[in-house]
Design a protein around this nucleic acid. Structure first.
Lengths: 127, 127
DNA sequence: CTCTTTGTACGAATATCTTCGTAAACGAAT
DNA sequence: ATTCGTTTACGAAGATATTCGTACAAAGAG
C-alpha cells in the first residue's frame, strides 16, 4: 500500500501554488503567498527546504537560484485528502459531502451542468 | 466575522463520535475511538479536557463521571473545513471537488439520485 | 576590486499537538 | 473503615510545525 501524502497546512498552500504555476523559485512562491497571508521570506524558504527533504517537491539546484517543482500528483493528493475527510467528518457518505459543498459555495449553472453530465456518465459505466 | 472552528485531526475524530452519539462519557468515546486507532484512556481524557478549554465541547460535571457534548455545529464545521479545502486545494472550484469525491469514493445509485435531485432544486431556486 | 543585493544554509526559539505517568477524589463492595 | 476499581486533574515529555535571525556564498553594479 502507498503511504498517504500528508502535507501540513502551510505545505499545502505552497503545493497549491506550485500546481498552479509549475516550476517556480522561492521568491515567486513567496510573493504569491504574501498576498494570502503574512510571511517572512526565510520562512517560506525553510518550508520549501523541508518539503524537499520530505520529497513533496523536487528542485533544480544547478543555478544559484533554485527552482522548485511539485513532486506529488495534484489529483492523487486531492483524492487522499478528500477521502480522509469523507471518512472522519462525513461518516463515509460522499454524497453528503457533495451536497454540503454545493450548498454553500455558490456554483454557476455551467458548473452544475458539468456535474450532471458527470453523474450520468458514472451511472452508465456502473451497469 | 466569526472565528473559524479549527479542530485538530484528533479532535475531529472525537467530535465526529459526539455528533453521531450525542452526549457521552469519556469512556464511551474512548471505547469507540479504540476501534479506530490505538489510544490510551488518559490520552482521550486529556484531549477532551483540552477541547473543553477551547470551547469545542461542553460538559456536565455535576456527577462524578462527566458528560460531554459537542458545542460546535456539525454542518457549520463541515462547511468551514470544506470551504477551506476548496479554496486552497481546488482553486475555488467546488465542482472540481465534487467530481473528485464522486469519482473515487464508490457511491450507490441511490446516492447519485439524491445528488441529482439536489442539483435540480438548486437550479430552481437560482432563478 | 569593493559594495550591495539576492540567495541558500543552518540552527534555534516558539508554538502547537499528542501521549502518558502519577496522584488524588470518589463511590461501591466487603 | 479498608480496599478496589473508576474517574478526573495535572504536569511533563516527546513529536511535529512554524517562524525567523544570522552567517555565508554568489552575482551584478560601480
Amino acid at each position: 500500500m502507498n503511504k498517504p501524502i500528508k502535507p501540513t497546512e502551510s505545505e499545502l498552500e505552497i503545493l497549491a501554488i506550485l500546481w498552479e504555476r509549475g516550476a517556480s523559485t522561492v521568491r515567486e512562491i513567496h510573493e504569491i503567498l504574501e498576498q494570502q497571508k503574512e510571511a517572512g521570506y526565510t520562512t517560506t524558504l525553510k518550508l520549501m527546504q523541508i518539503m524537499h527533504e520530505k520529497g513533496l517537491v523536487t528542485r533544480d539546484a544547478s543555478a544559484k537560484t533554485h527552482i522548485y517543482e511539485a513532486a506529488v500528483d495534484r489529483e492523487l493528493t486531492q483524492r487522499q485528502l478528500l477521502n480522509k475527510m469523507i471518512d472522519t467528518v462525513f461518516k463515509g457518505s460522499a454524497s453528503q459531502l457533495v451536497m454540503q459543498a454545493l450548498g454553500h459555495h455558490r456554483s454557476s449553472p455551467e458548473e452544475l451542468d458539468m456535474i450532471r453530465q458527470y453523474l450520468n456518465e458514472m451511472e452508465k459505466k456502473q451497469k
